[in-house]
Design a protein around this nucleic acid. Sequence first.
DNA 1: GCAAGGTC
Length: 869
Amino acid sequence: MLSLTTVGRGPRPSKRQCQGPGSPHGCASPAGSMSSRKGLNGTCSVHEYTGTFTGQLVRFKMTSVCGHVMTLDFLGKYNKWDKVDPAELFSQAPTEKKEANPKLNMVKFLQVEGKGCDYIVLWLDCDKEGENICFEVLDAVLPVMNQAHSGEKTVFRARFSSITDTDICTAMVRLGEPDHNEALSVDARQELDLRIGCAFTRFQTKYFQGKYGNLDSSLISFGPCQTPTLGFCVERHDKIQSFKPETYWVLQAKVDADKDRSLLLDWDRVRVFDREIAQMFLNMTKLEKEAQVEATSRKEKAKQRPLALNTVEMLRVASSSLGMGPQHAMQTAERLYTQGYISYPRTETTHYPESFDLKGPLRQQANHPYWADTVKRLLAEGINRPRKGHDAGDHPPITPMKSATEAELGGEAWRLYEYITRHFIATVSHDCKYLQSTISFRIGPEHFTCTGKTVISPGFTEIMPWQSVPLEESLPTCQRGDTFAVAEVKMLEKQTSPPDYLTEAELITLMEKHGIGTDASIPVHINNICQRNYVVVESGRRLKPTNLGIVLVHGYYKIDVELVLPTIRSAVEKQLNLIAQGKADYRQVLGHTLDVFKRKFHYFVDSIAGMDELMEVSFSPLAATGKPLSRCGKCHRFMKYIQAKPSRLHCSHCDETYTLPQNGTIKLYKELRCPLDDFELVLWSSGSRGKSYPLCPYCSNHPPFRDMKKGTGCNECTHPTCQHSLSMLGIGQCVECESGVLVLDPTSGPKWRVACNRCNVVAHCFENAHRVRVSADTCGTCEAALLDVDFNKARSPLLGDGTQHTGCVFCDPVFQELVELKHAASCHPMHRGPGRRQGRGRGRGRRPAGKPGTRRPKDKMSALAAYFV
DNA sequence: GCAAGGTC
C-alpha cells in the first residue's frame, strides 16, 4: 500500500523536519529506513519510508511540486494579435490550462509517482494559491491512483502554520479536505488578470505603435498590479511638478553653556510664514541678555530592536542601504537560500514560532570574524526573545542558516548575507537604551527647547551600527530658575522644498500598504515598469517616470481613473474573497467583473483620443519618424526606416507599416527588387561577425508561400527561380538544428559564409574567392548543392594555376580544408540552438520536390556532424 | 509580443 503525500511548493530541505524519528503520532519512519531519490524531472526529490496511516502500516512516498503546475492562457489562435480583436478576449476567447513549466514535466512526474497510490495527503502552503495548487495536483494524480472502495476518503489536506515537529504532527492527526472555494477564487483571479491585462495591453500597444515612431517601449502593457505601481511613481512626479515653494522664517537662539561651548536652541513655534511676524518675535527677543531655564527633564527611552526579517523589509533595506534593486536582491537571496546560507526568502511573517530554535542559528555565528564577540556575549548572558511580530502563517522570518565569510560568498551576496545576519542577531539582542534630556528656555516672551541624547546601553545598535543613536555632547546640568547668557538670536529665512522622486523602498511600502502584488511579485512589478521604459532608476534608487509613463497615467486619469488607482485590485480581491468564503458564486463573480471591465474597455477604446492628445506632445507620428531607406512596391516612393523598437519600415503614402526582424540592422540591398511585389530588398544583418540575409519587407509581413513563415527573409523563401531565394542559395541541411538549411550569404565575400536560416550556425567557407555560386548540381554522396568557386589567382588554394573549382562543401577534399563552423557572433550562448548531435540519420527534403530548380539535400547527418564536430 | 501568481 502506498501513500503519496505532497509537501510545499518547492524542494525545500525543511520538509524533512516532519519525518524525524520519535515523532509523537507515529507519522514517521524508524531512523535510517528512509530512501530518497530524484524524480524523473531531475528537480523534485521523492522520499519513501514506512509508517502508519489511518491505523494501517503503509509505505509513504513524499514529494513536492514547484509552484503552480498549470498556467492559464488563451487557445493558440487567440494569441495572434493581428487576427483577434482585443475586445473578444473578455468573453469569446476560450482559455486553457497549460503546464506552467513544460521542461519540468510536472504532470507526468506526478502521475508516475502517484500511480497505484491509495491515499494522497496535500501539504502545500496554506494560502489560496496553495489550495489552488492542491487541485492542480489532484487533476494530475487522481486518474492514476487506485480507486477508493465503498466511499472511503482518499484525499486529505494537511493544514499547518509552520514546519515544526509539533505543527506537522498536529496537522497529520487533524487532516481535512482541500478547500474548493479557495481554489476557485484563484481560478477567477487568473482568468480576470489574463483577460483584462491582455485586452488592454494589446489594444494600447497596437494603437500607439501604429501611430508613433519613437515610443521608447515596444510593448505598452497594462495590468492590475503594474499600472497602479506606475501610478504611484507618476503621482509623486505630479506632486513635484505642482509644488510651489513657500518662504518661512525661523528664530534660532544660541546660549553659552560654559566657557567654550554654546547650545543651539529650537524655537517652540518651529516656523512662521509671515516675515513681519517673525521680525516682531525677533525684536522681542534679540535684546534679551539672558535665557531662563523654565523646566528640565530626563527620561530613559528605548529604541526597539527590529522585528524579525520578512521579504519586503529585506527588499527595502537592500534598495535603500545596499543599493540593490528588488529583483536583483531577490535573485541574490534565492541563491543564498539554495546554497543553504539562509532560510526561505519569501515570507510575510515577522514572528518566530515559540518552538523555533533561535540559539542554533546564533551559535553558528559564534566564531565569525565580524561579530563573534557580540554573539558569544549574547549566548553567555542569554538571548532576548524577539519582539512579537506578524504571523502570516507562511514561512519563518528570513534567518541565516550557516556561517559564511566575504571570501566565500563574494560581493553582493556577501553584503546581503551580512545584512540578514546582523538583522537576525539584532532581533535577539536587547533594545538600545538612552537618556533623553530636555531643557526648556524662555528668552523674553518666547520659548525655546534644547534636547540631547546619551546612550545608556547600545543593545542591538552594536550589531546594527547604522541604527545607533548619534553621539551628542551631553547637556549641561541645570534646574528651573537657572539662567544662561544669550549669545545670539537670529532670524533665518528658509523655503519649503518639494518632495523627491519615490525611492524603491517607499514604493515597496506603498505597494504593501495597498495590497498591490505579493512578497514574491512586488520585485517583478517594479522590474516591469522599468523594463517597459515607464520609469528609470536614478541615483539613490529613486524612480523617475519617463514621458511615456507620465502620458499613460495622465491618460488613465482623463479617461477612467479607476484603471490606475490602487483600489482597482483590492475591489476585485474583495469579490474574490467572497468566492473563497463560499459566499458568492464563482461564475457570477467572474461574469460580473468581466462585464464591468469589458464596459471599461469599450469606453477606453472610444475615449483613446484623450490619451492620444497627450501622446502627441511627447512623440512623433510614424510619418515624421525615421530615415528614407527603400522603395515601396505599391507606390514606388521611399519608405522610412524606424529604428526604435520594434524596428519597421513605414510608407507614409500608403500608410502601411512593415515590421522587420528585431535585434539587427538594415540597409538597402543594391536597389534589388522582389520579383513578386516589386518592393526593394533590404539586407538584414545581426552584426559584422554575425549573419546577414536579404529580406523583402512585404513578403516578410505577408508570406507569399504557404511554407514561408511571417518575419522571415529571402533565405526562407521558396520562390523557385528568384536569385535571392532559399531555392537558389540553399546548400544542405543544417548541421545542428532540426529544421534549418545552410544558405549561402551572397553578400559575405570576400570572406564567404554560409549560414543556417533558422539557428545561428555560420560556416566560414572561403577567404580568397572573388565569386561563389550555388550550382544546379548536387553532391553524389550527400546530395547537398555543389558550390562553384572562383579563387583569386594569387592566393588560390588549388594546385597549379587553377582558380576555378566546383565541389561539395561537405565532401570535397579541397573545400573541407577551408570550411570552419561558427555560431553567429552576436548571439549569446543562452540562445543557441540545441547542442550538436550526431548520428541522426533521416532523409527529409528542405525544398518542395517537383519545382523547377529545386534540389533535395540528402540527410547525411552522421557524416556531416562527424565532419563539423 | 500580453497579466499575475507560484517557484528553479
